[in-house]
Design a protein around this nucleic acid. Structure first.
Lengths: 206, 206
DNA sequence: ATATGTGAAATCTTTCACAGCG
DNA sequence: CGCTGTGAAAGATTTCACATAT
């Protein structure tokens, strides 16, 4: 069901639906509609219905969608009806901020290992974990069977770290360094680069 | 020339072209081609040529593009051939990391004001600036004529901060809080939400 | 009455393929 | 010869509009 053939653009919207639904659930609402979701997200109601229809029939005509049911279905579709352990590579300022961020745990993501290559940082505590030497990364990640990693190292070491992660069996990388990573086809990469977002907006400013 | 009618999807790719070109320039290369750019970015050469052709004829047939010329053209198109002052609201872990990030300065973005509402933080130094009381946000941002802001406050205060920023004349907001902001049509918002990127990848993992 | 799920239509985006220029 | 810029074609995505179910 979570096959390929699902366009990437749809996959990209599903997490946003989930976020909106969780907020609606938090407000104590039992039921919602494609229209309400669409208004909150700035997406047309028809699009939301089409997207969801790729995976099944989750709504009831005349009534809409049960919020909790749709949340659980989306979690299943997105494979987040479980806890994912992650490795964090880079214990600088950004690594610290990420290690302390509560938003991961609430969504089923758990930082399990933290690495840095700086001997000043190795052995220190970050977000409840002890920073390990990057030299042991491949072995440790492999042993822990971790498949998701976040990279918060300087640009010039990001590709090297990425290579090690791939070698250790990682299949998904969230890269905060502003460089494009070269990875095998079976490895997924997402980028977080604030400058790109800013430049996308300055285009429209005078 | 930087009119509307330029599809959003193209605007979204321009900063990526700029990043790739700056790296190529850094490597000391004088000239590049749509093919080379495309290979680095995972985008087809035809697409890059089409995108650029929306703004002018920047290449030479048979030769390709002058790297420095194309960089300067893209900077002009994206309005980053100048320095933009920004306000940062939220001096928590993430705010600290952002305040210390060198990547903004290199791209013409400068943090000019930092705010927090926590009296413990007000008056402390963050990234060379003194954290100011959010109560003075509207006046200070207006006085400094700042039009770009970053929000790194907890989710439940993000909308309130956004309202204040808009009132102060901000036209572009980079929001790190995982909530959708309600802003007038003329205000641009971009979101950075790592969980959404992670969930986009777990879809493809087993 | 209300809101879904969905073919068909409209729109948008990408790729093709080649004329034309250095 | 190599590479751009670009109409035209192909492909993908979004919207429309309505039959259908509660």
């Amino acid at each position: 069901m979570s096959d390929k053939e699902i366009p990437d653009v749809i996959v990209g919207r599903l997490p946003r639906y989930l976020r909106a639904l969780q907020r609606i659930a938090n407000d104590g609402q039992r039921t919602t509609s494609s229209q309400e979701l669409g208004e909150q997200l700035g997406i047309s109601a028809a699009q939301i219905r089409k997207d969801l229809s790729q995976f099944g029939e989750f709504g009831k005509q005349g009534t809409g969608y049960s919020v909790t049911f749709l949340v659980s279905q989306l979690q299943q579709i997105l494979n987040v009806d479980r806890v994912w352990d992650m490795a964090l590579v880079g214990a600088g300022d950004l690594g610290h901020a990420i290690a302390h961020y509560q938003g991961f745990a609430d969504c089923g993501f758990r930082i399990a290992l933290v690495f840095d290559s700086d001997s000043q940082k190795i052995g220190t505590h970050v977000g409840g974990f002890i920073v390990q030497d990057s030299a042991s990364l491949v072995a440790a990640v492999k042993a822990a069977k971790i498949t998701i990693a976040m990279i918060t190292v300087p640009s010039n070491s990001a590709q090297m770290v990425s290579d090690q992660l791939v070698q250790a069996g990682v299949r998904a990388i969230l890269n905060y360094a502003p460089v494009i990573l070269n990875v095998p086809d079976e490895v997924h990469v997402q980028y977080i680069d604030p400058v790109i977002h800013l430049q996308r907006m300055t285009f429209y400013l005078d």
